[in-house]
Nucleic acid binder design. Structure first.
Lengths: 218, 218
DNA sequence: CAACGGATGTTTTCCAGCGAACAGACTCAG
DNA sequence: CTGAGTCTGTTCGCTGGAAAACATCCGTTG
């Protein structure tokens, strides 16, 4: 899934002059909520967190993106758009960046690429819908397990009795991810540890395979 | 915004043999949750409700679509996909229907069309994200006003002191739309009526302009 | 007109989870 | 070693809203 498969680097540069490769360190922002940002980003390597800061000061994580995903504001006739969320690097992130007009040109000139991107946006929509459903119907406990298993699938490295997460999340960040308050997440995580379905230290989480038994398959 | 602008009806038929114009009466389903549906729909006229039925038997409305919107499951290598939601006609609906393969062909062969559809899917993603944020941060009262104003904008007909909705929603449907329980919606609607910010009967809702004053602009 | 079914209005009970508040624990800089 | 800052664990009171349960109200149909 290489965005630039269709040509050499040089022809790319000529066709889409705004393309540039960049990278950011841990916790740096690709853009911030409220920014006017007419760029598109294609993650080459790393993890990006999309989150929204509410007026009350709570953070709500909308998605974690990784290699191959795209970020950017699509619609609108205006070249500058106010972003509704933060895009923040979780660990070091390498990415390509290009401007709105070039992106549009790229899409319209490369049909199968456009289909890929359509699929990716659609999939993200589905994920958000699932999250919405989860929040309206499930307890925090259930949501937390589901999220942990998702994380294990996305960022997990197989270890002896489960998956170790290769990202380090604080309990606050976990709480933002499931849409809950920090204290509740804390106590539930302890319960889980006591029940042996996961193990964690301050900087490391390991989800055991037994966690799978706790979610009921649809 | 005509999907088939680019050719005569006849060439269309030849290029994309599965295209057909159809219509459904009020409350009929385009497809149901759990169905395997490899078709795409393009709404020519009318309103379609996308909703999800939870295991507990609650319905959750994800979106109301109208003329020009598209529906269908996008990603995946399998021709048949299990739908995660119901698509139900609200009033009479006319629509075009075409199969996955033809849709893909259409998209990849018509660049600017693909851009349009990308925008539309992206916009729907944004709307769901906003809904999520609203549910996690606002009271039902606030959400209800916002939803009513959205409805007024989408389906409202200007009347003397506000907007009359051209669709008839029961309070249950309204509750599904804001993600709340029916009794609460009922009492709040009464409060609103008493405060004069809206008026309604069993089959008709009219949102007064004063409702605008109650939401705080971002 | 009776009676039935669906929509609305209202009350009561109950609890998940939030916010605040504080006490460890760990980590890093000086 | 010491203090500051950050993360974790736990408690407690409070409340928004869900669920259940009825009591109307209205329209439809036999």
């Amino acid at each position: 899934m290489n965005l630039f498969l269709s040509g050499t680097r040089e022809t790319c540069k000529k066709e889409y002059p705004s393309i540039q490769l960049a990278s950011l360190p841990d916790k740096a922002f690709l853009y911030r909520q409220g920014d006017c940002c007419s760029s598109f980003f294609w993650i080459k390597n790393g993890i990006v967190k999309l989150s929204h800061l509410t007026k009350q000061g709570n953070e709500l994580t909308l998605a974690l993106l990784k290699t191959g995903d795209i970020i950017g504001y699509l619609p609108g006739d205006f070249t500058n758009q106010v972003m509704e969320e933060n895009a923040q690097a979780l660990g070091k992130v390498d990415f390509y960046r290009l401007e709105y007009s070039d992106f549009k040109k790229l899409i319209t000139s490369q049909p199968n690429l456009s289909w890929q991107i359509l699929e990716s946006v659609y999939t993200r929509k589905q994920l958000i819908e699932r999250k919405l459903r989860a929040i309206l119907t499930q307890s925090i406990e259930q949501r937390l397990i589901v999220v942990l298993l998702e994380l294990a699938k996305l960022f997990g490295i197989r270890c002896t009795h489960g998956y170790a997460l290769e990202i380090s999340l604080t309990q606050q960040e976990l709480a933002d991810l499931v849409g809950a308050s920090r204290p509740v997440v804390s106590t539930i995580m302890n319960q889980f540890r006591n029940q042996g379905i996961l193990d964690y230290t301050r900087e490391h989480i390991c989800v055991n395979d037994t966690a799978l038994l706790l979610i009921d398959p649809r």
